[in-house]
Simulated assay, not measured.
Amino acid sequence: MNSVYCCPACKTNRSRFNLIEQVVHPIRKDPSTGKMIEHVPLSDPLQFQYQGEPYRVQCGICGLIDDERTFVAFGKQDSFQD
């Protein structure tokens, strides 16, 4: 999170971003009605554990949402020259 960001879509924003926390809530749903039956404990051996990013980044100017790696990579590629 301490890396330089640059938005790959609008290509000008280097300072205004939203961090979106991805909070996982494992659940079981009724297959015929779609209603939630229960919250599944994180320790349930039959529930695949979420392995995605803990948060995503949104450009505060154009609204693009993507992985932090995308913003960091573009920030390095398009870094300020001294």
Rank of each mutant, 00 (worst) to 15 (best):
Q22W: 02
F17R: 05
L46T: 11
I20D: 10
F74H: 13
E68C: 03
V72K: 13
V23M: 09
V24C: 06
R56N: 06
K29E: 12
N18G: 00
V57G: 01
P45C: 04
S43E: 15
M36Y: 12
Q58H: 06
I37S: 05
P45D: 14
R14T: 15
T12R: 05
P41H: 11
C59P: 02
Q58V: 10
K29Y: 10
F74C: 01
V24P: 01
V57I: 15
Q49I: 14
K11W: 03
Q58I: 08
F17A: 04
R56E: 07
P45S: 08
D82P: 09
Y50Q: 04
M1H: 13
A9H: 08
R14I: 15
Q81S: 06
A9D: 11
Q49A: 07
R16L: 11
S15A: 01
E21A: 11
H25C: 01
N2I: 14
N2A: 13
D30L: 03
R16E: 15
A9S: 12
P8F: 10
A9Y: 12
V57M: 04
F71D: 04
A73Q: 12
D67T: 12
V57C: 00
G52W: 10
C6M: 07
K11H: 06
I20T: 14
L46A: 03
V23W: 09
P45F: 08
R69S: 14
V72E: 09
N13G: 02
V40G: 02
G52Q: 02
E68F: 05
Y50P: 00
V57F: 09
E21D: 12
P41M: 10
C62H: 05
C59R: 02
S32C: 05
Q22K: 08
K35Q: 10
I20N: 09
P31W: 09
Q58W: 08
P45I: 14
E21F: 12
V4C: 04
G63P: 02
F48Y: 11
L42I: 13
C6R: 15
G34A: 03
E68G: 00
N13M: 00
F17M: 07
L64D: 02
Q49G: 03
R28L: 11
I61M: 03
E38M: 06
V72M: 14
N18T: 15
G34Q: 07
H25S: 03
Y5W: 14
F80S: 14
I65F: 07
I65K: 11
C59N: 09
V24A: 04
L42F: 14
L64R: 07
Q51R: 15
S3V: 05
Y50M: 05
N13C: 01
N18C: 05
F71E: 06
Y5V: 12
N13R: 02
G75L: 02
D66C: 00
D67I: 10
I20E: 12
L42A: 09
P45T: 12
V4F: 08
E53G: 00
E53P: 00
D82M: 05
C7L: 02
N2V: 14
K76H: 07
P26E: 06
F48T: 15
Y50L: 07
E68H: 13
C6D: 11
K29S: 06
S15D: 14
T70H: 06
K11L: 03
R28I: 10
